[in-house]
Design a protein around this nucleic acid. Structure first.
Length: 472
RNA sequence: GCUCCCAUCGUCUAGCGGUCCAGGACGCGGCCCUCUCAAGGCUGAAACACGAGUUCGAUUCUCGUUGGGAGCGCCA
């Protein structure tokens, strides 16, 4: 009998999928893939106040974009309320749970007292032995947690962590309105869904002994646990909306490739020797929980940018062209009549850290620049540049074949004949064509732009040169 | 306050008692290449938090200190 690995990612839909959640999902997905197991997506939406359908969609979108496809799910906890009720009753019948009639005010007072005594605030179990209901109070159901002994978590990344049961109190498993709570639904679901490995953020480590005890009360075997260290913002502070906790989809807006994000994320808290670049296949083959770090790690935006650039340089052109089209469209650039996107990508891929940037710096291929960058014009579109541009114009218009190579030859010949450095010829052309001082190599740029537009823009620049004030 | 977790260059990390005056990557500096911007090549600066042990020998093991973090809800 082979044991099948089953992992799950269980976000609560109270906001978008952020980078920390994405990393957790990635590790769950990798572990399942690595062991030919199943990766389950479960939406923990028992808090009906804060859960929204928009957030559910955002999580689904984020995972789809990163290509972290679940094998099962999404399952929704709100659709399993009958099952939870059944298990609550089972626990009640077995004497593992009881009704508690304490009011919120009473509980608050109790906590305040404990804090004053410098004790850890916890429920003291005062309703454990109560047999009579209390008038006018809808009871909650509490789990009867063991009061002596220890609970051991054999964590796959933390090692053995021991908790004294005396530290654990009787947690609420069903609210006064009958709805179940987190620590309980997690256990029922992990049990029902035969989850074998719970891989999650280490903010859950302290919950684990409680969950293990519920498993035991249910007569079930707890899964194996792995608690991942947190991800911090670039400044080393906790991830928050202000820092880098932006939605995964925001990274798409910003011009990142999903492969770059995934590669970046896999190296946050995990390493395989000195290797930095991992294809999905490689990470699946190499990933293991024993190689996961125990300490939190900060996001490094520069390194992410570097990885993104790497993927821009190496990803299949057609794929990049599609993503570039998306960004061009976002920036309101009409690509009709412009150069082929494949060729454009080929030309721009070595000088863009993001696709958003690439789209921005490619605008001039589709639209004539509104005006020249003043500084660039002052330096390059001078009276001295005018005859040069005129010659470029006339020789280019006579060029039989509009390709980069002959264009390059002409530019070079003009520079040589006039005893000018190449830059003295290329740079004025660049400003004439792009409006600024930055573009791909001038021959490739002109080839891509096409003869008609090139000559048009050169003519306009020649005119500009004659009106230009003499260099002061 | 109590419980739990963590600690190697600025950042991500390698290291699983000697191979480490600590290796790689991002970023940063310098040089080369160069029609701009890049890309690329070479190169430089940069870390074992501190203190006790254990050991012939600790970055690696133990304890403590300090410093971070998480949890302590009828949130998840």
């Amino acid at each position: 009998m082979k044991s099948v690995v089953r992992t799950r990612f269980a976000p609560s839909p109270t906001g978008y999928l952020h980078i920390g959640g994405a990393r957790t999902a990635l590790f769950c997905w990798l572990y399942a893939r690595r062991h030919n197991g199943d990766f389950i997506l479960r939406i923990e939406d028992t808090d009906r106040e804060r859960s929204t359908p928009e957030a559910v969609q955002a999580i689904l979108d984020g995972m789809a974009w990163l290509e972290l496809t679940p094998d099962e799910g999404p399952f929704y906890q709100t659709q399993r309320f009958d099952r939870y009720k059944e298990v609550v009753q089972q626990l009640l019948d077995a004497g593992h749970a009881y009704h508690c009639y304490c009011t919120k005010d009473e509980l608050e007072a109790m906590r305040a007292e404990q804090m004053a005594r410098k004790e850890k605030p916890r429920y003291d179990g005062r309703c454990r032995e109560r047999t009579e209901p209390r008038e006018g109070v809808d009871p909650v159901v509490r789990f009867k947690s063991p009061q002596t002994g220890q609970t051991v978590v054999d964590d796959q990344v933390r090692g053995r962590v021991t908790f004294n049961n005396a530290e654990l109190d009787d947690l609420i498993i069903a609210r006064a309105d009958g709805t179940p709570t987190y620590n309980f639904t997690v256990v029922v679901d992990d049990m029902d869904m035969s989850v074998t490995h719970v891989i999650r953020g280490d903010d859950h480590l302290n919950n684990t002994p409680r969950q293990i005890n519920i498993f035991k009360a249910l007569g079930a075997t707890p899964p194996s646990y792995a608690h991942l260290p947190m991800i911090l913002g670039p400044d080393g502070a906790k991830l928050s909306k202000r820092h880098g906790a932006v939605s995964v989809m925001q990274y798409r807006e910003d011009g990142f490739l999903p492969d770059a994000i995934v590669n970046y994320l896999v190296r946050l808290g995990w390493a395989h020797g000195d290797q930095e670049i991992f294809s999905r296949e490689e990470m699946i083959e190499l990933f293991d929980l024993v190689d996961v770090n125990q300490s939190a790690s900060a996001i490094n935006p520069e390194k992410l940018l570097w990885l993104n650039q790497h993927y821009i340089k190496t990803t299949d052109v057609a794929e990049l062209a599609m993503e570039l089209a998306w960004h061009l469209d976002r920036q309101g650039i009409d690509t009709i009549g412009g150069p082929a996107l494949d060729a454009l990508v080929e030309c721009q891929r070595e000088r863009a850290k993001t696709l958003k940037q690439m789209a921005e710096s490619s605008r001039f291929f589709f639209e004539e620049p509104q005006e020249y960058d003043p500084k660039a014009a002052r330096k390059n579109l001078t009276a001295e540049a005018r005859p040069v541009l005129e010659e470029v114009q006339s020789r280019l218009s006579a060029l039989p074949e509009w390709r980069a190579e002959p264009i390059h030859e002409i530019v070079q010949a003009i520079a040589a004949e006039r005893e000018l450095k190449l830059g003295k010829v290329a740079q004025p052309i660049r400003v004439a064509i792009s409006g600024g001082t930055v573009s791909p190599p001038i021959d490739a740029t002109l080839a891509l732009l096409g003869r008609e537009k090139t000559l048009q823009r050169l003519a306009r620049a020649v005119e500009f040169c004659s009106t230009a004030a003499p260099d002061a």
